[in-house]
Design a binder for these strands. Structure first.
Lengths: 188, 188, 188, 188
DNA sequence: TCGTAACCGAGACGGTACGTCGTGTCTTCAG
DNA sequence: CTGAAGACACGACGTACCGTCTCGGTTACGA
């Protein structure tokens, strides 16, 4: 019955207060001065924490920011359910794009994607702890209408998130409702 | 009236030998130790050049690598012309993906895209000196068959390059002929 | 009957096992890696003790090592008594130097003397709990022959221990029998 | 005739301004907050120098302070020459003790001696660049009167500097004229 | 032919951030 | 209250790159 009740581990337990302070400080700093000018020292100082404490639980600022992003917000965009793929997909894309435009998360996400290119270990973390969740959300939506899609699920996901990230990263065109419209039309 | 032709500038002219040595050294180093562990010092040392010489002509390692990439190779993938969009687009995508898989340029491109996220000035350079060229190549192809495309040219470009970059950056799936096939089918 | 001795203090009494384990661990570590690379953490770990336990009873590694040194050994060099100052002093010095050369205590003493320079509180402890004992031993010897000494007792002590420590700390010359001989001749 | 003209070394030459600024800053800081609380960062900051510049030329704060001490001052106590050993030695000792009492160099010297105990490399530097100079000064004096000394030159030096350092390091008694008198009487 | 000016190599410089280490305090659970 | 365990705030360390600077030395051109 796996009655496994937690073996009480010895020693002082991790301070959740400090953990939260660090995550908050990270988000604040990133918001104020931007990701590249955010430093581990800076986060520690603002959080009233020691640098060591940060390095004990995270491997660097990228991981801290990633966790801050994914934990502070149960940032779930609710999946629409309007009965057909066209409507649901359009609603999903509009909502996603709008969420991106609203808060200052987009530059942070771009920076994390950048970090992932420069640091293989972080790439893995970013993929499994962030990207795949988003992918899975859309995948669930698509799976509801298996035969209304003009291409395979995998390619549909790559097309949607590809266009999304590509416009975001390159910045040559906005993520607006028109794009949502066109992608929807293309895929259904 | 200084009739417009270049006044011969005084002083020692720029050494093209050195320029080439720097670009070569940059590519070599990036190939050997990867972009993040490549340093301006390292490039200078390997090229037998002074650091100042690099900073005189480029703004940093990103620009050097970018120029090395775009200059060393007349890296033109010849545009196919098989008579219809389906064939041309498929050929184009296959050739592009294969070029990417072959040499070690892909990690470098990923790194440059990363750099562009962290440095606005370089982002501009990367966009105009690299990304737009690729975009324009495909755009020319698409413009030959204005009515065989299932979406606008702009979105088609974003879909193609989006999927391409997304798979490349995230690395969750390969850039293979199957993707070329599916994208072609989707867009035509 | 508990007649009037120590009121029994509440709580768990100090573990003498642990105390000894800490002192032993300290001496071992100092012997193995040297004083500067010995850390409080290291001592605690090797002793199977908590750091807090160390800080509860000592003020830092210097005090631990000092106590280890002075307690583990009833390191009394027996005072010679040969009947005249020359013989006694020479015997004393020879024995002292030899004791120093034998075991690995000398580097530790040097390190403690160093620590005393950097930490006023420890300087006091080192002086009263170690240095003065040695001084007092020789002083007793000297006082037996008050009129065979060519200088005051205080200066004689400083000359003997001065030369001793000076050669030990600087290391430009050995603490050998020749020195014992010359010092004896000089002082008597 | 060994006409050895300096081979011109390439690169920017070492900045003597910076070197001096660092040495000055080191002495100031040591004077203000004491040696143990002086940090390399602190020195660099006050000198307006980069930390790297310090580590390029010295191995740590101990070496910087040592050089500051030995270079900033042609701190030569002039050798007395009064015609006989008793007078000269007494004069030398009095002058030495007084010099020590006057400025705040004594604590620094104690700290350097401490450092030498904890760092073998620095010990060597301290010995050859400081201690031996002092030794040699007194040795010269002694050598003028080879037969007025009651012991060998080497032991005389150890007795004098031994008593001096011992009283300085332990601090149980002052370095005063009485000690100078007694040492002189003992040795002559 | 000689001066001026920009080039080039080398490498020192001021600076910022990094990640690690040791200290001494604290907070948990177990005796 | 002691003690093991270990997290915590703090502060210094030494290193790595950055982008700028300052040397001596080298081309080129034009006076």
């Amino acid at each position: 019955m796996t009655s496994g009740q937690r073996k009480s581990i010895p020693g002082r337990p991790r301070s959740d207060t400090t953990r939260q302070a660090i995550l908050d400080a990270a988000l604040e700093l990133v918001g104020e001065v931007g990701y590249p000018r955010t430093t581990v020292d800076g986060i520690a100082q603002r959080a009233g924490a020691g640098k060591q404490t940060i390095y004990r639980w995270w491997s660097g600022k990228a991981e801290v920011v990633l966790e801050a992003l994914t934990s502070n917000a149960a940032r779930a965009i609710p999946l629409p359910d309007l009965g057909d793929l066209r409507s649901d997909l359009y609603a999903f894309l509009r909502a996603t794009f709008r969420a991106g435009r609203r808060a200052g998360i987009v530059p942070v996400l771009k920076a994390l994607m950048a970090e992932a290119q420069l640091d293989e270990a972080f790439a893995e973390a970013f993929r499994t702890r962030f990207l795949e969740h988003r992918r899975e959300a859309l995948a669930q939506l698509l799976r509801q209408y298996p035969d209304q899609l003009r291409t395979s699920e995998a390619v549909a996901l790559d097309v949607v998130f590809g266009a999304l990230w590509y416009r975001g990263l390159v910045g040559h065109a906005p993520l607006n409702d028109a794009l949502a419209r066109e992608l929807t039309d293309l895929l259904t």
